[in-house]
Design a protein around this nucleic acid. Sequence first.
DNA 1: TTACTAACGTGCAAATTTGCAATACTGTAA
DNA 2: TTACAGTATTGCAAATTTGCACGTTAGTAA
Lengths: 219, 219
Amino acid sequence: MTAATQPEAAGDPNSHRARKRARTWTAIHLAAAEAAATHDRLADVTIEAVAEKAEISPRTFFNYFRSKEDAVLGLRGAVIDRDVAAGFVVEPGGDLVEKVAFLLLAVFRTSNHRQISQQHYVELMDRHPELARKRFQHVDDVEALVTKLVTDKLAESEHWRATHAEHSAEDTARMIVTVAAAVMRMAMRPILAHPGQTEADADAILHRTFALFREVTHS
Amino acid sequence: MTAATQPEAAGDPNSHRARKRARTWTAIHLAAAEAAATHDRLADVTIEAVAEKAEISPRTFFNYFRSKEDAVLGLRGAVIDRDVAAGFVVEPGGDLVEKVAFLLLAVFRTSNHRQISQQHYVELMDRHPELARKRFQHVDDVEALVTKLVTDKLAESEHWRATHAEHSAEDTARMIVTVAAAVMRMAMRPILAHPGQTEADADAILHRTFALFREVTHS
DNA sequence: TTACTAACGTGCAAATTTGCAATACTGTAA
DNA sequence: TTACAGTATTGCAAATTTGCACGTTAGTAA
């Protein structure tokens, strides 16, 4: 889980409570991002200062974010969107690994709720390498989620069961997701490097990364 | 780096100094391992207690190990053995990814200097999941090291340069190592699961894991 | 409205982790 | 031996992070 204890996720997203939580979340995130932008070393940005600017107690900071870095980046717990999950199907034809990589990318995108511009965002990661590291770590969390989804989908797929008796659905899913995540992680580098990017650009980069992947593996 | 500030690595490994450091290192490691074995939650094992048993100050603990977990497992900074590095050659024929996976395994092995039995070791990881997590993280450190080696080897390989003009040596190396590490990580699970294992057993598991990998990717 | 429950915010205490500076120790070369 | 340089060990202080317990507030059902 990337997100912190995250006050019970809330039921009704329009309740007074949920809106207040969202406001507090954004306040902390923006306070952290600004502080990160105005200090040379991230170590000089203290939780205490961020909490004060967001008008909460330091203890409460950790109810919203696991760490300073998460707060700066605006990362929250990864969740697979209902539609995205439904759109992922195991069927004959098509590269499953590639499909999963795009699934990962989609989940990764929805787990980032930053309120700052991509430009600003990239500058921050540029200035503070710790941030980039955290962002990569975040992929691990997403991986676990997606592995579960893929395991289920494989298990309920007639087509797959008919053709792959030797390995368990879970082992296969783990392998697919691990490899897909590896490729995704590689693609992230150039994706993040270019500020003004559309999702299509990112997709293109991921496709190109896959070309390298195939070249390396299908030798 | 998995290892801590690790008092300057030492020049002469037979000096009074180096031997004393080794003794201290082992003392801390064993103290931590024993403490981990006798507590239900790793959180109840305090650095203070471990340091006391090893007869050093808590501050010194961190000169030897980055964390409690590293101390329990006996992990130290990954280094590529001279011979292992020399034995790795880029040449026509043979699966480079697979070769790198075994290289990773080799480096991984030499970076673990635990003084407790494999049996005991596995039991500890079984009891404390945090330990297993740390051990996996350690692969990241090894990855960085190996990526550098592979980059250099690719760059100086006539054969490779002749056949792969489109991608830089570094990009290619990164991809190869990332994928190999993914497969290795997968293989680690069953490798660790069976206590009384020879290196040959582990190799066999890695080979079998590769079979699954190929099945998944060469679809 | 009232009363109940779950969620939230907070203070406090303990543990982890790092930087810095002071002190002690080891190996070496004069 | 003595002096010197480089390492090691340590204490101290600050920041991060988590668990626990307490009081407050928001949603809900009677």
